[in-house]
Design a protein around this nucleic acid. Structure first.
Lengths: 358, 358
DNA sequence: AGTGGTTTAGCAAACGTTTGCCAAAAAGCA
DNA sequence: TGCTTTTTGGCAAACGTTTGCTAAACCACT
C-alpha cells in the first residue's frame, strides 16, 4: 500500500547494495569494499558477494557513488557548433578515439555543443560547476562564459585539442601545421610554382595564422616576396566550408595572373573549389596544383585524388585523454603544455609540377 | 588543519545551497523551493535568494539532485562503431540536432560506442542500470547484452533511429527508403534503363532489405524480371564504405552485360565507385547513371554531382528526441511505434537517360 | 591455553539535494 | 480586536553509496 511517510523515487527499481549484502549474508560495507577494493576482503566472502551480485543483476548507482566520493566519472567534449560542418569529415573519428580512450580509463563521454548563445554556454557551465563532469576536452579557441561564471574559474581539468591554448595555461594537443605547410610549399616551389592562392577559414583563427605563416616562411626562404601568395575566403565560418571553395573559384577566375597552386585550409573547400574550376575548364594538376588540410578519407576518391595534409586525429584524441588523466590525477603537477603531433602530407595526383607555359 | 573525523570530498569547493540560504537569511528548504518551484515562495524572498545565488555563483549539484529525485537528466546515444565510417558524413549532423533538441528539454547527451566487445557492452549497461541515464537513442539493430543483463530488461525508455525496431516494441524513426528507391528506380526505367547494379552494405541489414526491395518492386511493376538487377558488396561492413565501391567497380568491369544504373546504399561507396569507373574510361551519366543514399553535402561537388537520396537527419533527430520525451513522461502510454520521415531524391547530373546504344 | 599481532566485518556518519509535514506568520473578515 | 483561512518557512528524513573507526575473529607462537 506504500503509505510511507515520504515516498520518493518509486522509479529506481533495481537491486540495491543492501539486497546483495542480505543475500550474501554480510554487511553493506563489506559489499562495498569487496566490489571496489577486492584486496580488503576475504577471498571466500568476495566470491559469495560476487555471486550474489550477479544473481541479482546488481549495478551500483553511479550518482550515489559520485555524490559520496565527490567526483564523477564523466568527461565532456566541447565542440563549437560551426566545426561540425567544417572538420565534420573527421569529427566522428575524433569522438570515437576519445571515447575509446576514456572508456579504458573508466570514464564516460558527454557532448557539449558550444553554439555562441546563452543557452548553450549556460548548459556547459552547469555541467562544469554542477559537478557532473570531471574534466573537459575543448575544440574551440574560446572558453564559455555566462552570468559571471567562466569555465576558467572552475577547478575543472581542461585540455585543448586542435588549438594551441598554452597561453591560457591549458595543455594543448596540436599538429605541426606550420611546418607541414612550409614543407609542402617548399616542395611546390621546387616544382617550379611561383604563384599561390591561399583559401582561408575563419580569419585570425589559430590554424589560419599558423598555416598561412608556414606558407609565407617557405616563400621567404626561397627568396620570393609575400605578394606571391593571394588570400581568399577568411570572412566566412568553417561551417560554410564548401561555400568558401565555390566563392574562391569565382575569385580565381577573375585573377589576371593565375596562381598555379591552391592551398586550402580544409578538404571541404578544396573539393568544392576543384569541382568549380574543373567545370570552368582548368585541368588539375596540369594547370593548377591543389593541396588541402584534414586528410578526409573522401579525398582519395576525388578526381583527381586530392593531396591533403593529414590530421592524425585518433592519435591526437588519445594524447588529449592521457593529458587529461594526468591533469585529473595530479592537478598541480607542472607538465609541458604544448604537445605537437606530426601531421604528414599525403601526396596524390592533385599535386604536380608548375605548368611550363608560365 | 582539517582534522575532521572524516573528510571526504575536499574536492568540491563550490558554494552550497546552505551558503546561499545563509547569505539570504532563509532556510535551505526555502532556497530549494525558490529555485525549483518559483510559485511556492514569496516574490521578495525569491529575489533575495536569486541575488545571493548569483553573488556566490551557486550551481546546484546535479548528482545530489539526481540521487534524491531518483532520475538523471542525461540521455545516451548508442552508436555502432562501424556506422561511424559509413554514415560518418551525416553523424555529426545527427549528434548536433539531437543535442540541441535535448538541451531545449533540459537534458544532456552522453555518447556510447557500441563496438561488439565485452567492454563496450558492459559500459553501456552500466550506464543504463546504474541510473546514470534517463533514456537512450539507439542507431543499431541490436541491443547490447552483457553478463545476463540486457538493455531490453532495463526500464529505460529507448527510441530507435534509422532502424525499424518496432517489432521489438521500440518506437522507431525511419525514412521511407523503400518508397524513395522505388520511385527513383521507376524514374530510371522511364528513362530507358533496363539493367541495374545494386551496391549493398551489410547484408540482411534493415536498410539493405528495404532498399533492395524498393528496387525490385519497381522492376516488377514495370514488368522487368528480378534478374535485371545485380547485387554487389554485402559482405563488408559499412565501415569500409569506400572499399565497397572500389570492389564493385572491379566487379563492374568484369560484367559482360553492363548495367546502366548503379544504386549505391551509401554516398561513400558511390563516390569511390564513380571515381574508379571514370578512371577506367566510363562516362557518367552518359554510359552509366548513379544514385546513392544519405545526402552527404560533398555529393554536390563530385564530378559529376551525385544524385542522392537524402536522409533528413536533423528532422529525424528531433523526432527521436520528442518521442523519447513522451516515453519518459508517460512510459505506459501506448503510442505509434513506427514514424516515417520522407526522404527525397536530390536529382543531380549523375542521373540521366539510358545510353542509346544499348 | 594465553598473548600479541593481523585481518576482516560492521556501525554510523556523511555527500548535497528534495520534499512531506507541521508550525508560524500573514491576510481577510466580522 | 479576535477569529478563520491562506500562504510561507523550517525541520528532518531520505536518496544509495563510501569510509573512518572500532570490535571481533583469526592466526601463530610461547
Amino acid at each position: 500500500m506504500k503509505n510511507n511517510k515520504d515516498l520518493p523515487a518509486e522509479e529506481h527499481s533495481g537491486p540495491l547494495m543492501a539486497d546483495v549484502a542480505r543475500l550474501a549474508g554480510v554487511a553493506i560495507s563489506t559489499v562495498s569494499r569487496a566490489l571496489a577494493n577486492p584486496g580488503r576482503v576475504n577471498e571466500k566472502t568476495r566470491a559469495k558477494i560476487d555471486a550474489a551480485a550477479k544473481q541479482l543483476g546488481y549495478t551500483p548507482n553511479a550518482m550515489a557513488r559520485g555524490l559520496r566520493v565527490g567526483k564523477s566519472n564523466v568527461v565532456m567534449i566541447i565542440l563549437p557548433g560551426s566545426l561540425y560542418y567544417g572538420v565534420s569529415q573527421v569529427i566522428p573519428l575524433v569522438l570515437q578515439g576519445i571515447n575509446r580512450s576514456l572508456r579504458q580509463n573508466g570514464y564516460h563521454l558527454m557532448i557539449a555543443n558550444l553554439d555562441r548563445d546563452e543557452a548553450s554556454e549556460r548548459h556547459i557551465l552547469d555541467l562544469a560547476f554542477g559537478g557532473t563532469v570531471r574534466g573537459a576536452i575543448i575544440l574551440s579557441s574560446d572558453l564559455p562564459v555566462h552570468g559571471g561564471r567562466s569555465l576558467k574559474d572552475s577547478a575543472l581539468p581542461i585540455v585543448s585539442l586542435l588549438f594551441d591554448m598554452s597561453h591560457a595555461a591549458l595543455p594543448s594537443v596540436v599538429t605541426n601545421d606550420r611546418q607541414a605547410v612550409r614543407d609542402a610549399t617548399t616542395e611546390l616551389i621546387a616544382l617550379g610554382h611561383r604563384r599561390f592562392l591561399y583559401l582561408a577559414g575563419p580569419e585570425g583563427n589559430y590554424h589560419d595564422r599558423e598555416r598561412y605563416l608556414g606558407a609565407v616562411e617557405a616563400l621567404a626562404a626561397a627568396g620570393l616576396p609575400e605578394t606571391a601568395i593571394v588570400r581568399s575566403g577568411g570572412s566566412l565560418d568553417y561551417q560554410h566550408g564548401f561555400q568558401i571553395g565555390v566563392d574562391a573559384a569565382a575569385e580565381f577566375a577573375d585573377l589576371i595572373l593565375k596562381p598555379t597552386v591552391v592551398i586550402a585550409t580544409s578538404d571541404d573547400m578544396a573539393i568544392s573549389f576543384m569541382s568549380c574550376v574543373q567545370r570552368m575548364g582548368w585541368k588539375i594538376p596540369t594547370d593548377l596544383s591543389i593541396v588541402s588540410f584534414d586528410g578526409a578519407p573522401v579525398c582519395e576518391y576525388s578526381l583527381p585524388p586530392l593531396s591533403t595534409i593529414e590530421q592524425p586525429v585518433e592519435e591526437m584524441g588519445q594524447m588529449a585523454v592521457s593529458l587529461l588523466m594526468e591533469r585529473i590525477d595530479a592537478p598541480d603537477k607542472a607538465t609541458a603544455l604544448r604537445h605537437v603531433i606530426e601531421s604528414k602530407l599525403i601526396r596524390r595526383e592533385s599535386f604536380g609540377p608548375a605548368p611550363s607555359n608560365v
